[in-house]
Structure formats: structure tokens, C-alpha cells
């Protein structure tokens, strides 16, 4: 089953084509990695999917519903969760309260004036924290967590409303190598057991090849290559120009794609 269908997605900024006629599908339970050098258009693509940017052209269908033109909030409500490259959490709340906040929003109780927020959805929050291995830190202030723990917390927050799709922008950025592998392994386990699809961008190729089902390589707004990790790894163009040198492609190379 197709969870996300992207067709002819395009965006330009002042004459610079950031993303051009991008097409791809994402199946249920699939982990799709989006890679590419800096400036390849990954972030633009992400921001169009999560509603922060409006594409110039194209359509994004999530479980059959059009996302283009919807606000980020609405997209979240439809069942799309997000994590950020630099974690965005509530520093003055406890770990549990961070998850509770997402649950409160999910249950549409943000405008409740009298109930004690700290007593709402405690079990649900603790179950999510337990799943990411943060149960023992539930009472700690979020502002004093180690970075790796913040990443795991963010994953728990993103799972709170039972999303069908997770958009993860560089989920392992800023972490130590060992932590990266662990976090992605955890993510892969969770999405597998819950049937969640994941689209993520990543710089660390070890993470990409170890945990994705499929990889898309983006360069200068174009889809350069696509396939299983093994296919992409062995793609001569990707290998030669991207994985080898790390420099961007020249225009003439694009004809091979």
C-alpha cells in the first residue's frame, strides 16, 4: 500500500531551482532515506512535505489526501510525525511532560483550563517512553538531558499521536557514531512493529545503508539515483562522484541519471 505519493514536486527560490519535478512513492512500513550533498534540495523537499513551504507545482498525497496547501498543524493531525535536525523539545518540562504535551494536543485538550496537565495521559506517555528506553528518566527536566536522550525523547514525542508516517530530518545529527547506530536500530524496530513509514534524510552513510529499505539520491533538485541500499551503493555514478569525492555533480553528469 502506498502511504505517500509525491508527483512533479517543484520549488524554486529567486530563479534557483531547488527541487525540480520530483516523483516518488513510499510504501507502508518502508524506511526511505533521502541523501544528497549540501544544497541538493533535501531540506526544501522536507519542508514541502511537512507543510512549511508551499511547492510551486506538484502534489503530495498522504493516504490519498492532498497535503499541498495544508498547514503543518493539519498535516500532523492527519498522521504525519516529525523530528528535527536540531532537537526541538520543551526545556522547562520534564521528559514525561514533553510526551504528555503531544498527547494533550492529540486528544484536543490544549484549551482545558482546570485539569492538571501533569496527571493527564500518564500511562500512555510512560509506555511511549518505555518503548524508547527513557522510562527511568521520565521525571527529569528535559533541559538537562544528554543530546542522545533528547533525540530518543523526540522520537517518543513524534510517536505520540500514532502517526502513519514519520518525517525525520537528519535523525542522528550531532550524535556519536555508536549512538547513531543504536538510535536508528531503535527507530527501525519501532516502525516495523507499528507499521509506520519513515522518510529520513541522513549524512551518515553507515546509518543509511544499515537501516533503510530504499535510498533516493538527490542532487541539485533532481533525483539522481534510486534503489535498494545495495543498488545505490554499487551505482557507479553515485559511487564515483558522490560517495567518493563528496563534491556536487557537474551538469553533464546528469544525463547519465
Amino acid at each position: 500500500m502506498t502511504v505517500l505519493a509525491v508527483r512533479d514536486l517543484s520549488k524554486s527560490f529567486g530563479g534557483v531551482q531547488a527541487v525540480e519535478a520530483l516523483n516518488f512513492d513510499l510504501a507502508a512500513g518502508e524506511l526511505l532515506a533521502l541523501i544528497g550533498p549540501n544544497g541538493a534540495g533535501k531540506t526544501t523537499c522536507f519542508n514541502m512535505l511537512n507543510g512549511q513551504l508551499r511547492p510551486d507545482e506538484g502534489s503530495v498525497r498522504f493516504l490519498g489526501k492532498e497535503l499541498v496547501g495544508q498547514s503543518p498543524r493539519r498535516i500532523w493531525r492527519l498522521g504525519v510525525g516529525r523530528t528535527f535536525q536540531i532537537t526541538a523539545t520543551f526545556a522547562s518540562m520534564t521528559v514525561r511532560e514533553n510526551v504528555q504535551m503531544a498527547l494533550i494536543s492529540h486528544h484536543r485538550r490544549v484549551r482545558a483550563f482546570w485539569a492538571r496537565a501533569a496527571r493527564l495521559y500518564v500511562d500512555e506517555a510512560d509506555a511511549l517512553l518505555a518503548r524508547v528506553g527513557m522510562a527511568d528518566q521520565a521525571e527529569r527536566a528535559c533541559g538537562i538531558l544528554a543530546y542522545g536522550d533528547l533525540k530518543r525523547l523526540e522520537l517518543a514525542v513524534a510517536l505520540a499521536h500514532g502517526p502513519k508516517l514519520l518525517l525525520m530530518d537528519e535523525p542522528t545529527a550531532g550524535m556519536a557514531p555508536q549512538e547513531r547506530i543504536e538510535l536508528m536500530a531503535l527507530t527501525a524496530d519501532i516502525v516495523r512493529e507499528r507499521g509506520i513509514s519513515v522518510l529520513f534524510t541522513e549524512h551518515d552513510m553507515d546509518v543509511v545503508f544499515a537501516h533503510s529499505n530504499r535510498v533516493m539520491v538527490l542532487n541539485r533538485g533532481h533525483l539522481l539515483a534510486e534503489g535498494t541500499p545495495a543498488q545505490v551503493r554499487n551505482d557507479p555514478i553515485v559511487q564515483e562522484v558522490y560517495l567518493g569525492g563528496g563534491s556536487t555533480f557537474k551538469a553533464e553528469d546528469l544525463s547519465h541519471a
Binding site: F84, A88, T89, F90, A91, S92, M93, E97, Q100, M101, I104, S105, R109, V110, R111, A112, F113, W114, A115, R116, A117, A118, L120, V157
Partner: peptide, 17 residues
């Protein structure tokens, strides 16, 4: 202490989130 106030604090801590 209610969800309303928590949401307000949350918005202060991270409007992005």
C-alpha cells in the same frame, strides 16, 4: 498547571515543536 498553561509554556520553549 492545566493543559492551557502547559501549552503556553511549550510555545515559549519551542514554537517549532
Amino acid at each position: 498547571h492545566a493543559p492551557f498553561g502547559y501549552t503556553l509554556r511549550a510555545g515559549r520553549d519551542s514554537s517549532l515543536r
